[in-house]
Amino acid sequence: MSSQSILRALPFIAILLVVVVDLITGPRVGFLALLTLGPAFASVAGGVRRTALVGVLALAICVPLAVYDGLLGRTSNYLTLAAIVGVTAASMLASRLRNRRERELANLRLVAEAAQRVLLRPVPRRASDLRIALSYTSAAAEAQIGGDLYEVVTTPEGVRILIGDVQGKGLEAVETAAWVLGAFREAAYDQSELAGVVERVETSLARHLSGEKFVTAILAEVHDGEISLLNCGHPAPLVLRRDGVHFAEPQEEALPLGLGALGSPRPKPHRVPFGEGDQILFYTDGVIECRDRNGHFYPLAERAHLLRGADPQVALDALRADLLRHVGGPFLDDAAMLLLRRHPG
């Protein structure tokens, strides 16, 4: 039985227990006041009407129990009836306020998700000799829309990729993601060097971000037999070859985008062999920071064999399903994955 079903049944269980205990003990202890637990519990998971019906049920049960206990017509019984009515009214008000807040949060989440879907346009499934797969899982927590972003563009310099994660949550993070994506889409076509693309994005963010906000990101450019990576404080991508799996750690540490004012020089891209049949998985920290019920992080490298399937999208979907099984519940952060596979021709 799900937790929601248990919460919906709890008011009736509470009333039933009060009836059973009162019938066993008789009027010596006086359990009738505990019938107020019914409408109180009903307000936790039910609506206003359901809470009112549970309150009426508690009143209806209170009268025959008062007769059984010999309390009918006594002041204590009138006080019990008044308590049930008062608790029911307060619970109905609490239920109405809770439902209103839930609707507001749901609407806020829908707006943020819609904005995020507009920004994260579908990536091409094929580009040059690459096959591309994408997976994006939104956080299920209230108003926890994140700023995960990704883009793949084919330019005169080759296929260029961006994946990043904006610090923070909510609509502000989505707005920052829009700035990053807009700057990247423009600079990816204009700049001949990957470092120049990063500088253009950094300049755009400097006009937008305030305080200590930042964006971790990886920019990549595919060449013949290799791929150039420029890592700006982002988790290292996972490279899969026939002879093994490893993380493409950057040769130089780089600050995230938006922190260029600190004066740290931007490192040069480092090149990683990327030949026929090789794969590279880009991801955001929502993937590797997922924990199971025992607090263990998701072992991405150990699950890399799931990406060996014939179809990249099917293989990535299998990895996502394994990630969901590992978490066993709602995600606390957005999780984006972008898989590139090099095919002949």
Rank of each mutant, 00 (worst) to 15 (best):
D148R: 02
S91Q: 02
H343D: 09
L240G: 05
I24F: 08
G233K: 02
D22A: 10
A141Q: 14
A143K: 02
A335N: 03
L205N: 05
V19P: 01
T284E: 00
R271L: 07
V118T: 14
E104F: 12
E302Q: 15
A83E: 15
L32V: 06
W179S: 11
L229D: 02
L238P: 08
N99R: 08
R200N: 13
A106E: 13
L17C: 15
S5A: 12
Y298A: 10
T75I: 10
T25Y: 14
L209G: 00
L316S: 07
V215Y: 04
L59W: 06
G70N: 09
H326E: 06
T36L: 07
P27W: 02
M1F: 15
D285T: 07
S2P: 08
G244S: 07
E249K: 12
E302Y: 06
L130H: 06
L110T: 06
E202G: 05
Q279C: 08
A141F: 12
V152M: 11
T203Y: 10
R74K: 13
L229T: 13
P27A: 08
V67G: 09
R341V: 09
A33I: 15
V56Y: 01
R325E: 11
R320A: 12
T36M: 13
N77Q: 10
F282H: 04
T75L: 15
L229R: 04
G38V: 10
G86I: 14
R96T: 07
V152L: 07
I15C: 13
R291W: 08
A220S: 04
R271E: 13
L23Q: 11
D148H: 04
S204W: 09
G55H: 10
A82D: 04
F31V: 09
E202L: 07
Y68K: 01
V197T: 14
D333S: 14
T154C: 10
L17G: 15
T88C: 02
S135K: 05
A183P: 06
P156E: 00
